[in-house]
Design a protein around this nucleic acid. Structure first.
Lengths: 200, 200
DNA sequence: CGTAACTCGAACACCCATGTTCGAGTTACG
DNA sequence: CGTAACTCGAACATGGGTGTTCGAGTTACG
């Protein structure tokens, strides 16, 4: 509804210090919304090192901020996958590559989605369906088509399993119950165990 | 701190209608806390069909209610597993049985844990570690010891994977993306895919 | 250098959830 | 039946989050 698009590059008609503060706010929002629920405007302002009034000057409402943070997260993830070409790899190998590059992002987006649930319109959220998420899903489809991944379970279920296992890995990592160096490998091995056709 | 224990069976010095209302409140709390975050006292009172004042008469604070609900959930789960003897079955078969009997409970407890996080002392929560959860974990250990489950991934990681996949199944079921009849089977197959030793 | 853009603390109005009190009505139970 | 236990709506105090306004100070930028 609001005419000012925070799309990818904001309009240049803003002074440099204002632009810098907006940046700080979005990063703070990304950090807080991406890790804990119940974030307040004061929290974000403090985390960003900015006055509450300034925060409201740039983002008129809680909902506006939440939307901008989500948009920013999506922009980031697009940038992160841009250089990645998986089309030459077999699906299982491609999964390992994608995971290594993106699993933290994927997890953060999942947490973010949950924590802004009450602030943004679910439809709006659905429209912006994260391209990085889609990447994983299309890889899944390809793997099934190639026969490298199992076809005896619903595709949507496999997709959901991926996301929840990624979330599990992030949780365990954060709780110190998983070795940071081993984490990606463990996660990849687990995902592939789920995806491989059953030995039946 | 409060001297009145809501342990398993409350003291009999309460009138019948009061006892009935406590029951209704706990069930309402279990329903709400077990499914959505941000539950208010008014919500619980309304769901229980009881006045807000009555609610406070039985549970002086939000924290008291939350603790009582958790305790009630644990009592329920103990009752549900009581008749189950898995010691005669091989670990993979035992998992299927346990899952069929308990996965909804296990998921609800996971959600509950998350939703009362800000209301109860984490230490208190840890002390009461749900026996039903422990049941799954000890089954896991047994399976590894018997060689039926893989030993190349950390036991704690396997445990975390189980819980997250159970949660995934409950989510998908609630969202209508998973056939209610097929759900348990799909879940069991997925869990066993993770647990089985890799074919390598 | 001067002005417009920007920042920010203080104070305000508002809403919502938590607890509490009062007082009158209802219900269990001896 | 009579009393103690219980219920419950209304109203209050409190605390926290959301937005807004004001006014003075700072900073970018032509």
């Amino acid at each position: 509804m609001s005419p000012d698009d925070e799309g990818s590059s904001a309009r240049p008609s803003r002074r440099a210090d204002a632009q810098r503060n907006i940046e700080r706010i979005l990063e703070a929002g990304l950090r807080l919304y991406g890790s804990a629920p119940g974030v307040s405007m004061s929290d974000v302002a403090k985390e960003a090192g900015v006055g509450r009034v300034t925060l409201y000057a740039h983002f008129p409402s809680r909902a506006d901020l939440a939307r901008a943070v989500v948009q920013r997260a999506i922009d980031d993830s697009v940038a992160a996958v841009e250089g990645l070409d998986l089309s030459g790899l077999p699906a299982d190998e491609a999964l390992r590559v994608l995971l290594r590059a993106q699993w933290h992002t994927l997890d953060r987006h999942r947490a973010l989605r949950g924590n802004v649930r009450s602030d943004v319109d679910p439809e709006w959220l659905r429209e912006r369906h994260d391209p990085a998420m889609g990447k994983l899903e299309s890889l899944l489809s390809r793997g099934i088509a190639e026969g490298l991944f199992r076809a005896d379970l619903p595709r949507e279920w496999l997709s959901a399993s991926m996301y929840h296992l990624i979330h599990a890995a992030a949780d365990e990592l954060a709780a110190g119950r998983l070795d940071p160096d081993a984490a990606v490998g463990v996660l990849a091995e687990t995902l592939l165990s789920v995806l491989r056709p059953s030995p039946r």
